[in-house]
Design a protein around this nucleic acid. Structure first.
Lengths: 195, 195
DNA sequence: ACCTGAACACCGTTCAAGT
DNA sequence: ACCTGAACACCGTTCAAGT
């Protein structure tokens, strides 16, 4: 079942296995003994590469944070106007298949003091970026920030909803298209706020 | 520290302790040995009242589900029009202090197969109720449903955001008032959709 | 440098025995 | 009817010893 690598295991092998375990079964699934079994090695081997279970979690989170923040932000920078970039961001982020790893991390953030800071940084950067887009589209600084916070709420809430009621949110199809249209009009930049 | 009750402990004592533990430290904190210590009894006592740890969780969830669904839905039924009821619901639900227990359950729902069904039922009922209000305010059935889903997303996302960036969401004050105004206009029923 | 294997602590679960 | 206390399994962590 587990992919057994020939001899010298690297720390990254453990990190990959940890992230896969999180996506599949949550942060609680980052357990040394089961991971060791999956990698075909022993617990003792683990403690050569990591000081403890938390240290593995920490480094796995750092890897995720690096890989999943800038990529999304950079992906939409080719659209001509801020309004277009916002629209593209929405279209890219909302109909997409739910990212199981992101949901699991979001879930763990509420109770796990090691996960929360990572999620906080990522969320902060995303919010700031969206606020900047609203600002560039002509809204005041405070209105732009409020709308960015609301947009992030909708995004985060949708991750939760998708997991709670999978049948309610088809990944494609007419319902989802109408939904996206609703969201686009609700989240479009408005120029008339707090002149 | 723990409130030690005189002799015959009831199942409800364990359930109360479990719900308190969840609110404070997440579902993982429902651990028999620590709870026994807090209640001043032994693990053996626990297994008189419950078949196992999961059984305690199950019954704690059932208690929460019963207490926290109908109460909120019923609380706003005195407003004259559907539009007013929606507005009151928003005003009641959004500026309120974050419910730690609800956040912890929402978090656990993503990975815990015992928690998810309870959250799914509660979310479904809340969504249906809000959709009914939109419908009564004059929207088509499908538009009302889509808007209810979006409103639930904002609500759930806000719970997450509040925990990720506590400083961003003051419980009162001007920022929160402006935010509420934004939400009210974005989530107000519109009559012009899908005539 | 990297790994094994045994040891110990902690928590879930069982159960015979007590009141 | 309700509880204790000892026992065992499972996983985190340590460490002496191996290659």
């Amino acid at each position: 079942m587990g992919m057994v690598k020939s001899s010298p295991l690297t720390a990254d092998d453990w990190i990959d296995a940890a992230l896969r375990a999180i996506a599949e079964n949550g942060v609680g699934a980052v357990a040394v003994e089961p991971l060791a079994k999956k990698l075909g090695t022993t617990k003792g081997s683990f403690y050569w590469h990591f000081s403890n279970r938390d240290n593995l979690l920490e480094r796995a989170l750092a890897t995720w944070e690096r890989d999943h923040t800038d990529a999304i932000i950079a992906a939409v920078d080719d659209a001509p106007t801020p309004r277009d970039r916002l629209k593209q961001l929405l279209e890219r982020v909302f109909p997409a298949d739910i990212d199981a790893l992101e949901v699991a991390l979001l879930a763990a953030a509420a109770t796990d003091p090691r996960v929360r800071p990572a999620l906080t940084r990522v969320t902060q950067r995303r919010t700031d970026h969206v606020a900047k887009l609203y600002r560039a589209a002509g809204m005041t600084k405070s209105a732009a920030h409020r709308r960015a916070v609301i947009a992030m709420s909708v995004y985060l809430g949708r991750l939760q909803l998708a997991f709670l009621t999978p049948n309610e949110l088809p990944s494609g199809g007419a319902a989802s298209a109408a939904m996206l249209a609703d969201l686009e009009s609700m989240l479009a930049p408005s120029e008339s706020v707090e002149k």
